[in-house]
Each structure stands twice: as structure tokens, then as C-alpha cells.
Design a protein around this nucleic acid. Structure first.
Length: 272
DNA sequence: AGTGCGACCCGAACGC
DNA sequence: TGCGTTCGGGTCGCAC
């Protein structure tokens, strides 16, 4: 499950490999990945180059001379760089070929990822991008901001932190970790949180995401073979996927419950 | 507006 | 062993 740290790692890695090379061909093996017009997708990208790769939340933004290619990896999307001569792997759905015979391949076991090609001036009005909230590390991400957003929300804080329009880029793994860092029970109504608790959420999100990016993310071991990147944040996780293991603070076993249908890991004793 | 839930997918895990 | 069933997870769209 790529989250913001994984996406940032992919961005940085791809930037060293694909920029400023002319796209000579695009093969699309599963069309629903592409939300915009398929014919335009090829027409508007072939003979262009990616000149930069940006990111907003979990969206990758490939920039060409006159377009932005938005790409969301959802749970299992991955990019591989391979030589043109290598055979298509089972779950490779879109293959960009560059003038130097290298290829950028979008691989997605569950076919959940999405791409959308837009004109440059549409970036700020495209809902998927425009709706993104503040990212961890943004100086405007404060307890005051969170209190205002949480004000009318009766939903569990765990669910609300997954809302990308509030904090952009936190997924299930990091939300579980932030809740533990802030000593907050994930079932609490968002509107019940105090300013002090919101401060801890801000601080926890900032630190956890910064550290995770530094470590290359959590879940992207599978990128190693082609992109030379391994997610090492796995080793830092305190509660996620730790059901039954002793809490690192009090030693009581970590619980696993479902909140809003999502796996939630926490310590009942430390998170009130 | 906030909330709840199905749809989208398919490999892995599970049940018998 | 093998077959059928269930589950999960980010986001969107729709109903209430």
C-alpha cells in the first residue's frame, strides 16, 4: 500500500531515470486505468518528454511541456524501468517506451490505480488534486486547523485522519502509528479532541512522515529489483500489523479492530 | 453537510 | 489435495 512516503520515494527514484527522454510509444493493455480519453492520452504524450515529476498527497504528477499526467498507485501500483526487449509481465498494464529503448512500466495487480492526463491550466481545478488537504510538514498544518476541521465530525478520529481533504497523504499504516504516537484511542469522536491532542497529531504526522520518507517508505520492498530502493520504515512501526505483540511502552498486547472497515492497531492501555 | 456503503479488482487466506 | 468463498484497501459516487 503506497502512502505518501512511498510515493515520494518513487518520485525521487523515477526522476533520476526518465526525465527529458522522448516518449516514442505507449502500449495500454488495460484501459480503465486511464480516466481521460485513451486516444488523446497517446496522441498528447507521444513525442513529448517528462520534464519533471511533482507530487500532491499520494498523487504523482508527471509534467510534460504542455500536460500533467496524474497517477495514483492506490494499493498495489508500481513503476518499473526495464529494457524494451523484456517481455511484458502479467500485471503490467501500461508501458511507455522512450527514445533510448528503455521503458517505464505501470504494474498493478489489482488494477485499482488510476491515471488522468490533463492540460496544465486544469491542475488547480481537477478535483482529485484540488481537494487535497495540507500535507505533513506544511507550516499551515496546525492544531487550530485540525480543530476547525474536526468540529462537526462525530466519526472516529481514525476514519477522519484517512480523509485526504484534511491531511493529505496519510494512509492506514501511518494513521495507526500517529494515533499511537499521540496516545489517542482511534475510536474517539474527532470532535472530542483537545487542542493538546491535535498538537500531538500534527507533531506525530510531521515526524513519522519525515522519518518514513528518509527511510524510503514502508511497503515498497518490491521496487528493489528494478529501482534500487527498499522501504526500511517497516522496522520502525510500533503498532501496525503488531496484533498480540507487547506494546513498546506498557507491554500489554496490541489490539486489532475494524474501524470503518479498516484494520486498526492500537494499545488500549496507552491510547485513551 | 455529514455519514454510510457499494463498486472497483484479484491474490491470498481461509473453510470444508 | 482441491475447490469455493471471503477479505482487503483508497477513492469515488450515490443515497439518506
Amino acid at each position: 500500500m503506497p502512502e505518501i512516503a512511498e510515493v515520494e520515494t518513487v518520485r525521487n527514484t523515477l526522476k533520476t531515470r526518465i526525465l527529458n527522454k522522448k516518449i516514442t510509444n505507449i502500449d495500454i493493455f488495460y484501459e480503465p486505468i486511464i480516466e481521460s480519453n485513451i486516444k488523446d492520452f497517446k496522441k498528447d504524450l507521444i513525442n513529448k518528454s517528462f520534464i519533471d515529476i511533482k507530487r500532491k498527497g499520494k498523487w504523482l504528477i508527471f509534467e510534460t511541456e504542455d500536460r500533467y499526467l496524474l497517477s495514483h498507485l492506490r494499493m498495489e501500483g508500481k513503476f518499473f524501468i526495464k529494457d524494451k526487449s523484456e517481455e511484458k509481465a502479467k500485471h503490467e498494464h501500461i508501458i511507455f517506451t522512450f527514445e533510448d529503448n528503455s521503458t517505464l512500466r505501470y504494474h498493478d495487480t489489482r488494477k485499482f490505480g488510476r491515471m488522468n492526463l490533463i492540460k496544465k491550466e486544469e491542475l488547480e481545478t481537477t478535483p482529485s488534486i484540488a481537494k487535497q488537504g495540507l500535507e505533513p510538514g506544511d507550516k499551515n498544518l496546525t492544531s487550530e486547523y485540525l480543530l476547525a476541521k474536526f468540529k462537526d465530525k462525530k466519526l472516529p478520529i481514525k476514519t477522519v485522519l484517512l480523509d485526504q481533504t484534511i491531511i493529505s497523504g496519510l494512509g492506514n499504516i501511518y494513521v495507526n502509528e500517529v494515533m499511537f504516537y499521540a496516545h489517542i484511542n482511534p475510536l474517539r469522536e474527532a470532535r472530542s479532541l483537545t487542542k493538546e491532542e491535535c498538537d500531538l497529531i500534527v507533531k506525530g504526522s510531521n515526524e513519522i512522515i519525515k522519518e518514513a520518507i528518509k527511510m524510503g517508505g514502508t511497503t515498497i520492498k518490491s521496487y528493489t529489483s528494478s529501482l534500487g530502493v527498499t522501504g526500511r520504515f517497516q522496522q520502525k512501526l510500533k503498532v501496525h500489523k503488531k496484533e498480540g505483540e507487547p506494546c513498546s511502552i506498557c507491554g500489554k498486547p496490541i489490539k486489532n479492530i475494524k474501524i470503518g472497515g479498516r484494520s486498526t492497531y492500537y494499545c488500549e492501555n496507552c491510547q485513551k
